[in-house]
């Protein structure tokens, strides 16, 4: 057991060293390095949604709202405090905590709702956050409102992004492989039964929602310090959808699936951009949508994991 943990830690360290070397030597170009960073940031956010939906079964169409709250909070803190490592760390913490707090405030009332209805409520919550971001300049001119926010110091280097992603995955895996995680999964499987087996379902659903929201907030905070321009449209409903797709395609209740799919998905989208001739760029959205439809019809239980038992459960009344 212990030996295995050391082996995994060693492998991750080796992977980091290799990637850092390839980046420093320019074998991985700045362009692809940026895509790699984005894929890791999306991974952190997707792991958050995996906790909420994949493991606890709480359907959310508003995950990007937490990502946005994290990005804007962190950007604001960083711009106010100015560049420097302590300010950056504080901004990351602030982004995660703010998103977690918002998740707590919104989660306490709406997590009583089930499946489709919860999806619609979270979608509505996402629209509300988007509208608030569009009007954020009224709160503070620093936030920029619909014009977007610029000038956040670009402090999120690969070492930060990589190790925070590893840390997020590690914490999520620990949570899942504990009594808390089992209780969360039991809620996904049968909420009434879980309640009757002594599981405080409200508390655990809220826990998953807050931890998942905070991870999205952390991802947003990193994003704000990696890409120089923040705009409300980066955090709207389509972005929530992206993350949801990653979690569903990765197979609900599979953390490995989530991580692999998140990275693969970001690279796939960029690859599409690279291979499509520029006059066909418009086709990207069409291809994206078609891939999505075909994948869902071909493998409704997700690409990875997803036993046949999984497809049979939560069977459609449709």
């Amino acid at each position: 057991m212990r030996a295995r943990s050391f082996a995994i830690a060693g492998a991750i360290l080796g992977l980091y060293g290799l990637l850092e070397l390839l980046r420093q030597t320019g074998i991985i170009s700045a362009y692809w390095a940026q895509i790699m960073d984005l894929s890791l940031i999306i991974t952190i956010s997707a792991v958050g949604l995996s906790l909420i939906y994949g493991f606890t079964g709480q359907f959310s169409l508003g995950h990007a709202a937490f990502y946005g709250v994290g990005a804007y909070t962190a950007g604001f803190v960083s711009k106010t405090l100015g560049a420097g490592a302590p300010g950056f760390v504080l901004a990351l913490v602030a982004g995660a905590v703010a998103a977690g707090l918002v998740a707590l405030l919104i989660g306490l009332p709406i997590l009583r709702l089930r499946s489709d209805y919860l999806g619609i409520a979270t979608l509505g919550f996402g629209v509300i956050i988007r509208v608030l971001l569009d009007n954020s300049h009224k709160l503070s001119p620093t936030l920029g409102g619909a014009k977007g926010m610029m000038g956040v110091p670009q402090l999120a280097s690969f070492v930060w992004i990589f190790w925070l992603a590893v840390g997020a995955i590690w914490l999520a895996a620990n949570l899942i492989r504990s009594s808390y995680g089992r209780a969360c999964i039991s809620i996904r499987e049968d909420e009434v039964a879980a309640d009757l087996m002594g599981v405080n379902t409200t508390a655990l659903k809220t826990l998953a929602f807050v931890v998942g929201g905070a991870l999205a907030g952390l991802a947003g905070a990193l994003y704000a310090h990696r890409y120089p321009f923040l705009h409300p449209s980066t955090f709207d409903y389509l972005k929530s959808l992206d993350v949801l797709l990653v979690v569903v395609l990765g197979g609900l209740g599979s953390l490995t699936g989530t991580v692999v799919t998140a990275i693969g998905w970001v690279f796939l989208l960029e690859w599409l951009r690279a291979v499509l001739p520029s006059e066909y760029m418009d086709l990207r959205g069409v291809v994206y949508a078609l891939v999505l439809i075909v994948l869902m019809i071909a493998r409704p239980q997700g690409l990875l994991g997803g036993s046949s038992a999984k497809g049979g459960k939560r069977r459609a009344t449709a």
Binding site: F59, S115, D116, G119, L241, L244, L245, V248, A289, L290, L292, I293, M296, I297, P300, Q301, G311, G312, K313, R314, R315, A316, T317, A318
Partner: peptide, 13 residues
């Protein structure tokens, strides 16, 4: 007999 969520995501697609 796909899960409801698969149909919902297909609808989004």
């Amino acid at each position: 007999g796909a899960p409801n969520i698969a149909t919902l995501i297909t609808a989004i697609g």
